[in-house]
């Protein structure tokens, strides 16, 4: 690196410098500042560690899981947790631990897809509505209101019923029904910044509406959206589990945590672990996302940020 000679003694000082000398240093410095704020929040770090664990679990599922998640062994059905099956087996004799490990892939797929589609859809609709104003705003927000008028899960149910059950359709339904709150949020943020002097100043340099929206309004909306998405993740996982529970999500034999609970409910009194273990997994991951969201709010939320 060419700037090694001018670098202060420690990387930390270099990152925290108030006078960065390159674009890269400025960007890394801003990231490092955010990381320091985030790291100070112990609970958020716990959330982050759990989620990293979840990702690793999904990546290394074939090596981590002791058994084939779909292999049935009717001789070993409904075994309680033991040395051979740490979390027990289900009604078809499948190892619950292996199914939870493989199920993390499904969970991540659901969460990742919904977290990508809903907020982007919401951001687009909300900022365009807020920035354009007038009849565009009216039309877009009335559509949003219509979506908001239905309970989310009911709408998702209707969609899945129309599209046919399956994990992919379930995710699609959740994504399509999930955007209205994000649109509302983005619109509110847009209204707050659209008359800001820095927007006016950019206009005076000849910036068109598309550039203002993407380069100036979006950066002000994205951080609160990210926080909101992280906090909503738990809800998304639960909704997906709900659809799975109702038989409209993942189809057997695919290991999905919600569907696993659904399978286990018949035996809940005598063989509690069949439903409780995947329930615990959902609980832990939901909690982790909530903790992460809290920490991200400290880092990102412009309102909470100190001058």
């Amino acid at each position: 690196m060419t700037d090694l000679s001018t670098r202060p003694a420690s990387t930390r000082d270099w990152l925290l410098s108030d006078a960065p000398s390159t674009r890269r240093q400025a960007r890394l410095g801003a990231l490092y500042q955010g990381w320091l704020t985030f790291r100070a929040n112990t609970l958020a770090m716990v959330g982050l560690v759990i989620l990293i664990g979840l990702v690793l679990m999904a990546i290394f599922a074939p090596w981590l899981s002791p058994y084939d998640p779909v292999a049935q062994n009717l001789g070993d059905r409904l075994m309680p947790p033991s040395g051979a099956h740490w979390l027990g087996t289900d009604a078809l004799g499948r190892d619950i631990l292996s199914r939870i490990i493989w199920g993390s892939r499904v969970t991540l797929f659901i969460v990742g897809t919904v977290a990508l589609i809903s907020p982007i859809l919401g951001l687009l609709i909300g900022t365009v509505a807020g920035f354009a104003g007038g009849w565009v705003d009216q039309v877009l927000m009335r559509i949003t209101d219509i979506f908001l008028a239905f309970p989310k899960l009911i709408l998702a149910l209707a969609l899945v019923a129309a599209l046919g059950p399956g994990i992919f359709n379930a995710v699609l339904a959740l994504a399509i029904t999930g955007w209205p709150p994000y649109a509302r949020l983005s619109r509110a943020e847009t209204l707050a910044v659209r008359h800001a002097d820095y927007i006016a100043a950019a206009r005076l340099q000849g910036a068109g509406p598309a550039r203002l929206l993407v380069g100036h309004v979006w950066p002000m909306c994205v951080s609160s959206l990210i926080v909101r998405v992280a906090l909503d993740m738990a809800g998304i996982i639960l909704s997906a589990a709900g659809l799975g529970f109702l038989g409209l999500g993942a189809q057997p034999p695919l290991a999905e945590w919600g569907a696993m609970i659904s399978d286990g409910r018949t035996y809940i009194l005598d063989h509690w672990w069949v439903a409780a273990m995947p329930g615990l997994a959902i609980f832990i991951v939901s909690l982790a996302f909530n903790l992460l969201g809290d920490g991200l709010r400290d880092v990102l939320d412009p309102k909470g940020a100190k001058e």
Binding site: R23, A26, Y198, A200, A202, G206, R211, P219, M220
Partner: peptide
Amino acid sequence: YASLHPRHSVDRVLSETLALQ
């Protein structure tokens, strides 16, 4: 405090202006 975008660096402000002009 209100006329500079809080998330844009000086470099970004000026280079965007130059590009627009």
